[in-house]
Write a protein that binds this DNA or RNA. Sequence first.
DNA 1: TTTAACTAGTTGCATGTGCAACTAATAATG
DNA 2: CATTATTAGTTGCACATGCAACTAGTTAAA
Lengths: 154, 154
Amino acid sequence: MKKDDIHIDFENAIVPWLGKTVKVIDYAFQELLKHNDLDLTKEQMIVLKRLHDKDGLNQNELAFLTLRNKSSLTRLLSKMERKNYILRKQSIEDKRVNNVYLTQLGKDIFLDSKPVLKEMITDVESNISKEEKEQIINILKKIQSNFNSKIESL
Amino acid sequence: MKKDDIHIDFENAIVPWLGKTVKVIDYAFQELLKHNDLDLTKEQMIVLKRLHDKDGLNQNELAFLTLRNKSSLTRLLSKMERKNYILRKQSIEDKRVNNVYLTQLGKDIFLDSKPVLKEMITDVESNISKEEKEQIINILKKIQSNFNSKIESL
DNA sequence: TTTAACTAGTTGCATGTGCAACTAATAATG
DNA sequence: CATTATTAGTTGCACATGCAACTAGTTAAA
C-alpha cells in the first residue's frame, strides 16, 4: 500500500473529540476564574489544591502529582511565589530539596476558588448519568493503559 | 454552608481523567513524531492535515477548523512558512485575506506523517470496542453541549 | 576518603496559547 | 461620497510546557 492511499477517518476518531472537549472545558474554566476576579490560572489552582491536600510537598512530588515536568513546575512556583501564594523552604535534611508551603494568602485564594472548581465539575457532569460517568472514566483508563506499555518501551 | 466546608471529590471527577488522558496521548504522539524523524509538532501536523483536505483555506477558516484563535494560528503558520511547509498568498479579491497553500515539501511531510497519525489513532482505540467508542464520543458530545449555552451567555 | 554516579531544582531555548491593541482593507451608513 | 463600522491578520505581553544542559548537594563505590 502506498503512503498516500492510507485513509484516516480523523473526524470520527476518539482523539479529536477528546481534544476539543478539553479545550472547551479549559476555556470555560478560565472564564469562570476571570469572572470571579480570581488572579489565578487553572494550573496554579491545581497546585494550590495539591498543597491544600498536603502542605509541604517538595517540588518533585508536586510535579508528579500535577503531571508536569520539574522545569515547568519550577516556573509555575516562581510565579506563585511572586504573587505570595506559596513559599519555598529549603529542607534541612537534604539541602537539594525545597518544601513548598501555602501562605495565608494562598490558603484564602484557594478557598475562594474552590466554589469555581466545584462549579466547573458540576457543569461538566450535568446531564451525565452515573452510568455514563463510570463508562467514560473506565474507557479513559483503558486508553491510558494502551500507552503505559508503549511509553515504557521508548 | 461555609466556603471551607465545600467538599470536592476531584480525583473521581471526569475532568482530571480527561486531562491526564490527553496528556498521555499528546506525549506519545510527540514521541512517535520524533522517533520517525519528522520535524513537526502535533499542532503543525493538524494544520497540514486541514490543508491537505482543502488547500488554499484562509487563516480565519484554518483557525476555526483547528480550534485556535487567529493570533495563535498566525504564529503557527509563520513557523511552518519558515520551514517551507506552507505558503501564504494574498487574495486578489480581498487584500486582507491570506490563502494558505501546501508547498511540495509540505505535501511530502504530510504524507510521511500520515502513518504516524494513523498509528496514534489505532493505539488510542486498541482494546476499545465499537460500542465503547460510540459511548465515549456521545458522552464527550454531551459534555461539550453543557458548555455551549454557557459560553454564549458570557 | 576520594572519586564517580545520581538527584533536586534552575535556566536557556524552542514550542504553543489567549487577550487586547493595532494596521490595513473592505463594507455599511448617513 | 465621506465617515463609520467591521473584518483579516499581526504583534506585544503574559502564561504554560518539554528537553537538555547546568549547579549544588547527596550517596555509592573504588
